[in-house]
């Protein structure tokens, strides 16, 4: 019974943020809700072990894996090269709508890194563990994601001017 109560408390305390994280990655509230429910169910089914060792990290990892549909292969396949260019579009006034739109246009894997880094505020090792990839690649992949974000913002602004 104690374990049941512990799980309820955990689910109540964490699920809102997990949902927002899932939503930011999926862009779909139903998929986000499914992913959170499925991950919590996975945690519940082995709660005794999960609760003893970083349950938030476990559930977060389950959510992200569910969303990305990505499994941990023995060797990680190379991802398509992404242009690493771009001029800085930083503005004094933050146009959150434009940034949000650009975020949603990122490839889902890059968006996951951005959300884990800048919303969940995870360190590189934690992101690597969550995504099941090597920690040394996180810095590089974060840079690529930010570069793409800049590019999308620039394109958006140029489109608006045209």
């Amino acid at each position: 019974m104690r374990a049941e109560l512990d799980f309820e408390e955990f689910a109540s305390a964490t699920s809102d943020r997990f949902f927002r994280t899932a939503y930011a990655i999926t862009r779909d509230p139903e998929l986000a809700e499914d992913a959170v429910r499925s991950a919590l169910a996975a945690a519940y089914s082995r709660w005794r072990k999960v609760s003893a060792d970083a349950p938030e990290a476990y559930v977060r990892r389950m959510i992200v894996n569910e969303i990305l549909g990505r499994r941990r292969p023995a060797t990680r396949p190379a991802e398509a090269p992404v242009r690493r260019y771009v001029a800085s579009p930083e503005q004094r006034v933050v146009d959150t709508d434009a940034v949000w739109t650009a975020l949603l246009e990122l490839p889902v894997g890059q968006r996951a890194i951005i959300v884990l880094r800048y919303y969940e505020r995870l360190g590189e090792d934690e992101i690597a563990t969550t995504l099941g990839i090597r920690p040394e690649t996180i810095t590089d992949e974060t840079s690529v994601a930010l570069a793409n974000l800049r590019r999308l913002l620039t394109a958006s602004r140029q489109g608006a001017r045209a």
Binding site: P29, L40, E90, T96, I114
Partner: peptide
Amino acid sequence: MTIELIVVETLERKLADVPVPRVD
């Protein structure tokens, strides 16, 4: 403001407005 801070602010603002379903 750096792009990182812009992203942080955007995520916090936009996600705070998202209706969160009750966890059953």
